[in-house]
Amino acid sequence: PVIQEAARRSLAPSTTLRNLLSWLQGVPSDERPPVYLMTYFNLFLSIGLDQFVTLAQRAGGIRGAVIPDLSFEDAGYVRRIFHAGGMSLIPFVAPTTSDGRMKRIVARSEDFIYLVSLLGTTGKELSETGTVSRLVSRIRLLTDSPVCVGFGIQSPDVASKVLGVADGVIVGSRLVREETDPDRWQSLLAAFCDVARSVPSFSTAGV
């Protein structure tokens, strides 16, 4: 429901991937962190993958994309097009991922691996980090790529605990839920950023 409502608000003023990329082009590159776009595959298809890469290159600073509804098995063609444009396609690993499939996925990892912390829909809170810690350990036996954890990061406190076992956190629905209150949104974002900066290996945030 949180993401569905966010999509409704976004579509109301006719937001598109094309005009988002156009807007990014107007933001000075030294004033924004590396950008990873996260959205559904049909938006890339609507403008064409090659055209997307061209527009992303023109915008500058876009490192790659996270496409939740694109399976690893179907991603080869997309990955090749992204690579040609200097971008990465971020892979997912979940609690249900088998050892064999995990090995194939991480072999294709680049900038980082998106670790889904729990089963279910976005908006649930991660109650403990034991499962995440075990999953991170399994992944690190196979690759040196950073592991960033998403799903369940509903507070700066949870983010801090997860950063004790992983390389990064991905915060989505928690910030989306507060976007209708700009002051509260800004305060919450600042709190998450403070947690990220407390990590010794912290260098730069991604959006």
Score class of each variant (00 low, 15 high):
1 P>W: 08
1 P>I: 12
2 V>T: 13
3 I>C: 09
8 R>N: 02
8 R>C: 13
9 R>S: 09
10 S>F: 02
12 A>T: 09
12 A>Y: 00
16 T>C: 14
17 L>K: 09
18 R>P: 03
19 N>G: 08
19 N>I: 15
20 L>E: 00
24 L>D: 03
25 Q>F: 09
29 S>Y: 01
33 P>V: 15
34 P>S: 08
34 P>K: 05
34 P>N: 08
36 Y>D: 11
37 L>T: 02
38 M>T: 14
38 M>C: 06
40 Y>F: 12
40 Y>D: 14
42 N>H: 01
43 L>A: 15
46 S>D: 12
49 L>Y: 11
49 L>H: 04
52 F>E: 14
54 T>I: 14
54 T>F: 12
55 L>T: 07
56 A>M: 02
58 R>F: 06
58 R>H: 04
61 G>C: 12
61 G>T: 04
61 G>Y: 04
64 G>I: 13
66 V>S: 07
70 L>P: 05
72 F>D: 09
75 A>K: 13
76 G>L: 13
76 G>V: 12
77 Y>M: 13
78 V>E: 10
80 R>C: 05
87 M>A: 15
88 S>A: 14
88 S>E: 15
90 I>H: 08
93 V>Y: 01
96 T>Y: 04
97 T>S: 05
98 S>A: 03
98 S>Y: 03
100 G>R: 02
102 M>R: 02
102 M>G: 05
108 R>F: 04
112 F>S: 13
115 L>I: 07
121 T>S: 14
121 T>L: 02
122 T>Q: 09
126 L>K: 00
127 S>V: 10
129 T>L: 03
130 G>F: 09
131 T>I: 02
131 T>A: 03
132 V>N: 08
133 S>M: 08
136 V>T: 09
139 I>K: 06
140 R>D: 05
140 R>A: 10
140 R>S: 09
140 R>N: 05
148 C>A: 08
148 C>H: 00
149 V>S: 08
152 G>D: 09
152 G>K: 00
152 G>Y: 11
152 G>F: 14
154 Q>H: 06
155 S>D: 00
156 P>G: 08
157 D>W: 06
157 D>I: 02
158 V>P: 04
159 A>I: 13
161 K>M: 00
161 K>V: 01
161 K>I: 01
162 V>D: 05
163 L>V: 07
164 G>Q: 14
164 G>S: 10
166 A>M: 11
166 A>N: 07
167 D>Q: 03
169 V>R: 04
169 V>P: 12
171 V>C: 00
171 V>I: 08
173 S>V: 09
174 R>V: 15
175 L>E: 12
176 V>F: 03
179 E>Y: 11
180 T>Y: 05
182 P>F: 09
183 D>R: 02
186 Q>T: 01
188 L>M: 15
191 A>N: 02
191 A>H: 05
192 F>V: 10
192 F>D: 10
193 C>M: 04
195 V>E: 15
197 R>G: 06
200 P>T: 13
201 S>F: 00
203 S>Q: 15
204 T>H: 13
